[in-house]
């Protein structure tokens, strides 16, 4: 082998080594890249699951706690003998955030009352001052006050939120309010005339005024635990809501 040839083969060897090194590096880079990517995706997935599980709504347990409807006042849901802690819920049938609260945490309130862990008081009020939301809210609020039976009231209350109209159109019309009454199983013979005549409209207005004076709420929904306003973050996170109420019960 001539000197030139030896030099050439040495150079080729180095080239081969460099090529192999490059492949190794490339593979290492790929592994690092994929690992980092997998960790990032896993973090996103874990955060997503966590968010979803914290805000997972509770399932309906057994029967509701007994409910007492005061047509000119609030609605109380509590097992007999349970007087504290008190959860006050100030809500408006027309308010979208209230609808969201009911769909997320409504079942938690019901369960807590049914388990005897809290006395839950619903305060249906009319927070809106502009049309068409004010009239919508008033009609619905007055109609709900026509339902005297506790279980039927709760079914009606849930239906009103489920069927909440848009904030920019007339809704909660009288014939709809009557139809939902039937769907909720309202049996009282006075229901139809009560809703049609909007018998409790002035009660709804008067009670709203009373609440705004005494409870000093900033808006709806407002939830108070033993008179202290609960954080929005808590009431919209069923697991946290339950934890706080259970802690207050001790």
């Amino acid at each position: 082998m001539s000197k030139g040839e030896r030099q050439k083969s040495a150079r080729e060897k180095i080239k081969e080594q460099q090529a192999a090194e490059r492949v190794r590096e490339q593979r290492k880079r790929l592994v690092t890249y994929l690992t980092a990517g997998a960790v990032a995706v896993a973090a996103v997935g874990a955060g997503w699951m966590w968010a979803a599980s914290r805000s997972q709504s509770e399932q309906a347990g057994g029967d509701l706690a007994p409910i007492t409807v005061h047509p000119d006042n609030a609605v109380v849901m509590a097992k007999s003998g349970v007087t504290k802690p008190v959860i006050d819920i100030y809500e408006d049938f027309q308010c979208p955030a209230c609808r969201q609260l009911e769909s997320v945490s409504g079942q938690t309130f019901k369960n807590l009352a049914a388990e005897g862990k809290a006395k839950v008081v619903y305060h249906p009020i009319t927070i809106f001052s502009q049309e068409p939301t004010r009239s919508n809210s008033l009609r619905a609020g007055a109609a709900a006050r026509c339902v005297a039976d506790g279980k039927q009231w709760m079914a009606y209350h849930d239906l009103l939120f489920e069927n909440q109209p848009s904030e920019t159109a007339e809704g909660f019309k009288i014939d709809q309010l009557l139809a939902w009454g039937k769907e909720a199983g309202v049996t009282s013979p006075d229901f139809q005339s009560c809703v049609t005549g909007q018998k409790h409209a002035k009660d709804q207005i008067a009670y709203t005024g009373q609440v705004q004076k005494s409870a000093k709420i900033q808006g709806t929904p407002t939830v108070k635990l033993n008179g202290v306003e609960m954080d929005n973050r808590v009431i919209f996170t069923p697991q946290e809501l339950r934890d706080q109420v259970t802690k207050a019960a001790k």
Binding site: A52, R54, S55, P96, Q100, V104, R233, F236, T237
Partner: peptide
């Protein structure tokens, strides 16, 4: 936003 998933959904 992360502490309040329901608001985020809303």
């Amino acid at each position: 936003k992360i502490g309040n998933p329901s608001d985020s959904v809303l």
